[in-house]
Design a protein around this nucleic acid. Structure first.
Lengths: 342, 342
DNA sequence: TACTTTCGTGTAATCGATTACATGATTTTT
DNA sequence: AAAAATCATGTAATCGATTACACGAAAGTA
């Protein structure tokens, strides 16, 4: 029943103008103290709420920020979003969520929709790599909307990014497997047109070389991030002339699939075979045979992305700042790869 | 560099008025075909984007919908949000996320912020039960903003809700444990001022009574939804005069904690002791000893909530419709409670 | 007292789009 | 050919807030 109350309603009631009401509510020093108090009291009585849309239209700032992720129901992305929301909440920003479902078409649509909706910035994890696609990103930058990539990044001028050192993550995990005595280490990789998978792979390779082990092409399997894919990949590996004795998987889910398949074949983990994953999904530590994994500190990644955004908008000058933040990965060593400790 | 292009810019360039441009872009039938084409072509050339804020201010509809959850980084809530987003995406709505972190103060703040931001509706899972709190909800309804509760609901006139039949979920899980031969079944409950926990408990109790088993107050432990809480609760139960031989936990995390503690004490699951949880968290099926759990079909719950919202706004008349949708829970029977199958 | 500041508030433009109403140009009707 | 109907577009108000500028009143200065 209570219709929306505007400053005009307050003005009418008090026989003053809307301008005065606006000034009173905004603590403009030119307003008489008595008037200010009267206005504020009346506004409260009438249950007045500022219409943020009008404010947004006038100021050109919506106080909304868009977040684009492949999907929200993954622990990693949900945690990043949590971090973003927590960091931005005290600054009065609202977070708008978009999912791409790994579709570049959807990614472009989302970018346009968010720009249309006048968001003050976009924080996203890139869905795929395609050349045409860049036009959508460029469109965002042309409208002077700050754009920040996290995790899955892409090289575009004027775009800041927050990632983890995937190379180091791959290196640490692989080195650990070597230290446990593994000598034939396979790797489950993702789509290497994405930097994250490319770098995890390179880290893996470098660790092998640094330890004097030979890198074998046939030990690298490209899998999807699923349990099923992990099982299938193990099947392939075990049919090789020299089957591996360890796997560093760029996906926890594929690592889990591998473990299930190995156990099904009565191969003992970690004694005969070691496995390490990536992402530190919650289930990795819950398993009875807990899984070694590389943590990406998603919460911190989200907060950091939000902070980079805030810095970006704080800069009043139009000089574009491009910041590249790289977080350190952390290897969580668990039972799936710990031979010395049982 | 490309500043924002408005319909006025297009109008100026074509020596017509903004009104004509607006009409041409909106397929108003009164516009000459040649003009329409010219305007549309020019708009595309100039990279014109409609300013949704201006539209929103004029129309009073922001095309944003607010979603309030305790936290986003839980599989359940993330999945619900995914469902909401997917259902609303084709209708042009954007989803704004807010977290309460289980704080009623934050919940109220979020409600006010969303109303201020002129969202077209609010879909939420209630954080807590408090009497004062109702004023925040009432404020939403007074502004004629559709409000929909999911999962954790509350009885307020004019508010629709989408929940699962928690009573039935509790009943099914408990009945299953009984069928497996368990006779002393304990229950981990949550805050029973929330309907969901109250109903899971009642379902548990009813299943006991229907099977002729006696309900024992000391078998009901109030735990938080955490692994640690589950361990502590087992400690209490095993010290009872007649320790139980099964647990129906209203939380998967507590169920996991219970299992870890039981295994630590060398109590064999499921032979000596059965466990069932609630929520069907991803890890429950990944475990080596997979955990029986009640599925809440969160994706479907999200989609259904969105549909109820859409129905609500479709009704042009101001008659308030209040819809209560109750989804059926599904028991996923797994190793932690399956004695017959090993 | 006359003149300059300062103070508090009103006037009106603005943000970008939509739309009821007005108007002039065509076309149709008789 | 005059009147009526139709068509295409322009004019201006509107959504709700902010703010540069204007202005009258009160206060300070000489």
């Amino acid at each position: 029943m209570s219709e929306k109350v505007t400053i005009y309603d307050i003005a009418e009631k008090l026989n003053i103008t809307a301008a005065t009401v606006s000034r009173a509510l905004n603590n403009n020093p030119k307003i008489k103290e008595a008037t200010r108090e009267l206005v504020i009291r009346t506004a409260a009585e009438m249950n007045y709420k500022q219409n943020k849309l009008a404010l947004a239209l006038k100021s050109g700032r919506s106080n909304n920020i868009g977040v684009i992720v492949p999907r929200i129901d993954s622990n990693f992305f949900a945690s990043v979003i949590r971090g973003i929301e927590e960091e931005l909440y005290p600054h009065g920003y609202q977070v708008i969520i978009c999912q791409t479902h790994e579709s570049i078409k959807r990614e472009n649509e989302n970018l346009h929709t968010l720009v249309d909706a006048q968001v003050d910035g976009i924080i996203m994890s890139v869905t795929g790599i395609s050349n045409e696609n860049d036009s959508a990103f460029r469109n965002v930058l042309e409208k002077n909307v700050p754009l920040i990539f996290f995790d899955r990044s892409k090289h575009i001028d004027g775009v800041s990014s927050v990632t983890i050192n995937d190379f180091k993550g791959g290196y640490l995990a692989t080195k650990h497997l070597i230290d446990e005595g593994c000598r034939n280490i396979a790797h489950f990789s993702g789509n290497q047109s994405l930097d994250i998978f490319k770098n995890r792979f390179l880290g893996y390779k470098q660790a092998l070389l640094d330890s004097g082990l030979t890198f074998k092409e046939e030990y690298v399997i490209h899998t999807k991030s699923s349990v099923e894919a992990g099982k299938e990949a193990v099947d392939i590996l075990l049919n090789l002339e020299t089957p591996p004795d360890a796997i560093f998987s760029a996906s926890d889910f594929a690592a889990l699939g591998a473990i299930q398949e190995l156990q099904f074949r009565n191969i003992s983990i970690p004694n005969e075979f070691c496995v390490a994953g990536f992402s530190n999904e919650p289930f990795t530590k819950f398993m009875e045979l807990s899984i070694t994994s590389v943590d990406q500190s998603p919460l911190e990644m989200g907060k950091m992305s939000a902070r980079v955004f805030l810095e970006q908008v704080a800069k009043t000058d139009t000089i574009k700042i491009e910041k590249k933040v790289v977080l350190a990965p952390e290897l969580h060593i668990r039972k799936s790869s710990t031979r010395t400790n049982f």
